[in-house]
């Protein structure tokens, strides 16, 4: 555990979470959500849980973003609420 790195990652994590929720543009939100997954992956790797970090890197930061973008292209791009 490196405390300054932890704090930086957690700050970015909170920013990414809020931005992903607040963005009206769903494509942008999907990209930010992938960033969120990647940040969680970094935090897990830094805590020593390498297997979990690997899964998060492939699923959270990788394929879920691709699936969300594929879905957004076939639906409306902006959120209506």
């Amino acid at each position: 555990m490196i405390l300054p790195l932890d704090i930086i990652l957690l700050i970015f994590l909170v920013i990414a979470a809020v931005v992903a929720l607040k963005l009206r543009d769903l494509l942008g939100a999907a990209m930010v959500f992938s960033t969120y997954g990647f940040l969680i992956c970094l935090i897990w790797a830094e805590m020593g849980a390498v297997d979990v970090a690997f899964t998060e890197a492939t699923v959270g930061a990788g394929i879920s973003g691709a699936l969300m973008i594929a879905t957004i292209f076939k639906t409306a791009r902006k959120s209506s609420d």
Partner: peptide
Amino acid sequence: SPGGGFQGGVVLGTSFI
């Protein structure tokens, strides 16, 4: 090493994507 069927499967699936 870290990894296994699930992670490898996702990487393989991503290559097809």
